[in-house]
Amino acid sequence: MVVKPEWLRVKAPQWQRVGNVKQVLADLGLNTVCEEASCPNIGECFNAGTATFLIMGPACTRACPYCDIDFEKKPKALDPTEPQRLAEAVGRLNLNHVVITSVNRDDLPDGGAEQFKRCIEAVRSRSPQTTIEVLIPDLCGNWEALEIILSAAPEVLNHNIETVSRLYRRVRPQGDYQRSLELLRRSREQAPWIYTKSGLMVGLGETAEEVQQVLVDLRSVDCDIVTIGQYLQPTQKHLGVDRFVTPAEFDAWQQQGSQLGFLQVVASPLTRSSYHAEEVRRLMQEYPRQRPAIALN
């Protein structure tokens, strides 16, 4: 049995606050990646009154061997009420910053881009002061679909690179390393007012040099924000942990990322793509960008 090191122990949450968030989600029939993907930070985030909403799910069309989101169920038709229910949850929870992500919907011609746009517009209408981050799939390289999402002008567009190029076939067999970089490049080129973000897991067999190369590659497409966290095996059916990366190594990558020019580098064993995502509001004040009234035609 693999024993987690001390630095991966999570504080027990205050269940009263967690229960409040869970009740709102249940009332409105919403999913969160916090619950569906077995995130270790669920207690901390729910206690803070934040959640990463998972739209178009909970069933996914891809079977990534590291992810705990269900891929065995058949995806359902899109629910036209989902954007309004999500916006209502953001309002009830009084969120300053919201993260909206989705399962992969490769069964849809646009990969779910229009649903992302509807959700962004609904949240902005209900809570105009809330900043919006979307964590999107690769859309199978459908760049017209990407333009649909960009046209709604979220403050942050996040797409996770997930792992180093060498491990893609094993870790992300239906993904493509260069395609993910291209998505981030196009996002920056077509909507330079939107902050771009990406993240990767470590502890899957990559080398320190390969992680540094990912950082270089992300900066080559002008990515603003990067997150790096320890991979944890959700169940025995998933990929095993190759090793537990030490906090000192995360500190080194954080320093390297800062030297490469990222506006923000979040690197620690428990970091996840949306961990402390609300801190982007501070970044936006420090490095402001003017969002046009209508982003794209």
Rank of each mutant, 00 (worst) to 15 (best):
M56F: 07
L218R: 01
S180I: 10
P109I: 08
E278P: 07
G112R: 05
K22T: 10
L232P: 01
C67P: 04
Q14F: 13
L150M: 05
V21P: 00
R282A: 15
I161Q: 04
D70N: 12
I100V: 14
V103C: 02
R186M: 07
A12Y: 08
R9I: 12
R281T: 12
V98T: 09
A87I: 10
L30C: 06
I161P: 05
P80Q: 11
L28M: 03
R281W: 03
Q212R: 15
V216K: 14
L25E: 02
L95M: 15
T52M: 01
F244G: 05
D106Q: 07
V2Q: 15
M56G: 03
G261M: 08
L232R: 07
L28N: 01
G257S: 10
E189A: 14
A59L: 03
S180R: 08
V202S: 06
F250G: 03
A122W: 05
Q178H: 15
P173A: 10
G29K: 09
N142Y: 05
V241R: 01
Q129D: 13
N297V: 14
D138R: 03
V10H: 11
K197Y: 10
E209D: 14
R62C: 04
I100C: 05
P234Y: 01
D79K: 12
L78I: 09
M1N: 12
I42T: 13
A63Y: 08
I194N: 01
F71R: 07
P80K: 08
V98E: 01
T32G: 02
P109C: 10
L157Q: 02
D27M: 06
K237N: 14
Q115Y: 10
C45E: 06
Q230S: 07
I69W: 01
S187D: 04
E144I: 08
D224I: 05
L239I: 09
Q213G: 09
E206S: 05
G199R: 03
R169M: 13
T101F: 03
L93R: 02
I194S: 00
E133L: 02
R219A: 08
